[in-house]
Simulated scan of single mutants.
Amino acid sequence: MIELIITALWLVIPAYVPNSTAVLFQGKTPIDFNKDFIDGNRLLGDGKTIRGFIGGGLCGTITGGIQIYLAPTLGLPDFNTNIFLVASLAFGALLGDMFFSFLKRRLNKKRGSPFPGVDQLDFLIGALLVTWLLYPSWFTTNFTPQVLLVVFVLTPVIHISVNLIAYKLGYKNEPW
């Protein structure tokens, strides 16, 4: 069981890092360039910036590159020594976050308002979907049903814990 948990978490580290690090880049230019959708609401909002997207995605990709290097020594999956594969996890996480942000705007939810379940899993869904689309053989070999179950159970717990810590340290305006 412990080996399964370690493998599952190892596989999603490149997806976990981008959301945590994107906020550190504090970009000024929103990805949606302040444009509204046909419903009159912003496409995404001020929280999704070009600098955050690039910076967070690169941090996740670099982290995955380090994992590729360490994997043989640790006996963990090596992502086929493919930096583009880890980039699909990293940038897919940010795309998932942006897609669900777009949905939140359509539901008239304001930036920072809670959306239980979605807030904890949006980035994971994006990372898994993009990686499955680009690398289906690798994905189905590594993301077995057991690994997916572990990832979907542990991610909300980790997400809520990390966000609460970031909130307490003053890095986030809300604890979710």
Rank of each mutant, 00 (worst) to 15 (best):
G40R: 05
F33G: 09
M1E: 06
I13T: 09
L128M: 13
N34K: 14
A166E: 08
T81C: 11
A90C: 08
P14G: 04
V153G: 03
G75T: 10
V162K: 07
V130T: 04
V157D: 04
G170W: 08
W10F: 07
N34S: 12
G170K: 07
G57M: 06
L124T: 02
F53G: 01
G75F: 09
T155D: 02
S161I: 09
F37S: 14
L148T: 00
L89M: 14
Q120A: 08
L44D: 03
V153F: 08
I2V: 12
V17D: 01
F139L: 09
Y16I: 05
D39R: 10
S137E: 15
M98H: 03
T81D: 14
F152L: 04
P136I: 10
L124G: 01
F115D: 01
L94T: 02
S137R: 11
K168D: 09
F123H: 02
F25K: 10
T7Q: 14
D36M: 14
I31H: 03
F33Y: 14
G55H: 01
K104W: 06
T131C: 09
S113E: 14
Q67G: 06
V130M: 07
D122Y: 02
L154C: 02
W138G: 06
T144K: 14
A22G: 13
A15F: 05
I50H: 03
L124H: 01
V86P: 01
G170S: 07
F143T: 03
P77T: 08
V12C: 06
D97Q: 08
F53A: 10
L124P: 00
G112Q: 13
Q26G: 06
R106K: 15
N34G: 15
